[in-house]
Computed example of a mutant assay.
Amino acid sequence: MTRWGFAGRVVIAYAVGFVMFLGLRHWQAGQPWPQAAEDAAVFAFAPMVGGLVFRRALRAGRSRESGHDG
């Protein structure tokens, strides 16, 4: 996958998480839109970074199992 393809997937993952958390914070928690947007930005960022770390760890584990470096 090219760097631009990977960057596109990261942006899409963040956008989906942001919209999901925005709806949860506004409609379920009853927060006003500005506060819900701030919370959604943070709540979407943390799982996205966790997913990237998890993906990197899986890739490193696979390369170790197959005997390749990097």
Rank of each mutant, 00 (worst) to 15 (best):
F6P: 00
V19Y: 01
A36R: 00
G30I: 02
Q31E: 15
P34C: 06
V53L: 11
P47G: 04
M1V: 04
G30L: 03
R64V: 14
F21N: 14
E38C: 13
V10H: 04
R55P: 00
A36L: 02
Q35D: 15
A7K: 11
G70V: 06
A37L: 10
I12N: 00
L24Q: 03
F6Y: 07
Q28A: 14
V16K: 00
S63L: 12
V11C: 12
A7N: 12
A57F: 12
Q31V: 03
E38Q: 14
H68N: 08
A37G: 09
A57M: 11
R9D: 07
Y14P: 05
Y14H: 11
W4Y: 01
G50C: 10
R3S: 09
A46S: 08
I12P: 00
A46V: 15
W33Q: 03
Y14W: 15
A41I: 03
V16P: 00
S63G: 00
A7G: 11
F54S: 08
L24Y: 07
V10W: 07
G67P: 13
W27S: 04
A36M: 01
P34N: 06
L52I: 10
H26V: 10
P32G: 03
A44G: 01
G5L: 10
R59Y: 12
R56E: 15
I12D: 00
G5Q: 11
H26N: 12
V53D: 02
V53F: 08
Q35N: 15
L58H: 08
R55V: 10
P47W: 04
G5W: 09
H68K: 10
M48L: 13
M20F: 13
D69H: 12
G51E: 01
F54K: 08
R56Q: 14
Y14S: 05
P47Y: 07
F6L: 11
V11N: 05
W33G: 01
G51Y: 03
V53K: 04
V49N: 05
W27H: 08
G61Q: 04
A29N: 06
A40L: 09
W33R: 07
V11W: 09
R59H: 14
F21T: 12
P47A: 07
F6G: 08
A40R: 04
R9L: 11
M48N: 06
D69I: 11
M48A: 09
R3L: 11
L22M: 07
V53M: 08
V42M: 08
